Amino acid sequence: MTGAEGVRCALLRGGTSKGAYFLAEDLPTDPAARDDLLLRIMGSPDPRQIDGLGGGHPLTSKVAVVSASADPAADVDYLFLQVAVDRAEVTDRQNCGNILAGVGPFAVERGLVPPGDGETSVRIRMRNTGESAVATFPTPGGRVDHTGRAAISGVPGTAAPVMIEFPAAGRPLLPTGRVRDTIAGTDVTCVDNGMPTVLIPATALKVTGYEDPAELEEDRQLADRLREIRLAAGPLMGLGDVESATVPKLSLLAPPRNGGAVTTRTFIPVRCHTSIGVLGAASVAAGLALPGSVAEGIARPPAEGHRMRIEHPTGLLEVDTDVVPGAGDAPPVARRTAVVRTARKIFDGTVFPRPAGVLPAAPTPAPARTPGGNDGSAPS
């Protein structure tokens, strides 16, 4: 399949990301051919992705591949692919909880799952990790309704709510087996509640944790320290060499300012997120609930209940997580994690990729930053 005749595709905003959604049957089965086609569809490699669907930023250069599941415990399989913007690279080494928000509605509209009358729950197996999720969303009259009154930080307006619930993950909540590690001379907590994440006190890296993302991205000393920590954390967390990977995520922690449990600045891996990923927030919330983590003395978790409000640069994300600390030799476990996201269909039709073998003669220059760092982009 070359895609020269066009490929069936839907573009959806899922949470605070935007991605192209495909049925697996509409893409090549060979991963190399599939990735080549997706690079041409998204317009990579080019900083502006001017000749494709991508928006010139990792948050808007994402792909969901969806198919009926052979697993009796799931309705559909979801493979997340991150398409690099300025490199000819497609990776499946992580999940994306924001793009996950659009998988259920897409599956219903493609006929993979019959809709309920009122609301529909779709059981989703995430092929990147083998973990599962259940997405529940409104389907009045047996049709997906993308409109609604749910609002999430980082997205203008409102849309229909998508409740996403994650059962206990099969992987250890503490990948290193310890609630604290010292990595590259810095005390951290490595946690994985759906997304491998390293929690770092912001002040340990000589920043406050309240800076604008653009300001943090321009701090070369900070970038070098983050890279050092990430590369050392990868093997300790069982991820191997992460030089070319986007995991683990790094989340700087600071005391909350707006009634939440903690303030975060998250790097993926060098761009600073203007909000926070769903699974990244789930891992932060789990880390806050672990006695002895680096969040102690920084975070202010609720005295009662399991709902954590994770502050980020454009608002907050609420995570309902139930963590049972380990007793004796038993490791800690996150029994339940749930979040509310929204998703909205932007278009559904046919996308025409750049012809095979055709690359930009020279990379399109990235826009120069204006004073204050406002170049119109949003971080990953």
Score class of each variant (00 low, 15 high):
A4L: 12
A4I: 02
V7I: 14
T16S: 09
G19K: 09
A24R: 15
Q49E: 14
L59C: 08
S69A: 12
D75G: 00
F80R: 08
A88D: 04
A88H: 10
G97T: 08
P115R: 07
P115V: 03
E119A: 14
E119V: 00
V122T: 06
R125C: 03
M126D: 04
R127Y: 00
R127V: 13
T129A: 08
V134S: 12
P138G: 02
T139V: 02
A151N: 00
I152V: 14
A160Y: 04
V162I: 14
V162A: 10
I164G: 02
E165L: 06
A168H: 09
R171G: 12
P175R: 09
R178W: 11
D181W: 01
A184S: 15
A184K: 01
A204N: 04
P213K: 13
A233G: 07
P248L: 12
K249S: 14
K249E: 00
L250E: 09
T263F: 10
T266H: 08
I268Y: 01
H273M: 11
V278Q: 04
V278P: 06
A289D: 10
A295G: 15
G297Y: 02
E311R: 00
H312W: 10
G315C: 07
P325G: 05
P331H: 01
R336V: 00
V339H: 07
R344K: 13
K345V: 12
F347V: 14
F352Q: 12
P355M: 06
A362C: 01
R369C: 12
T370D: 14
P371W: 11
P371F: 11
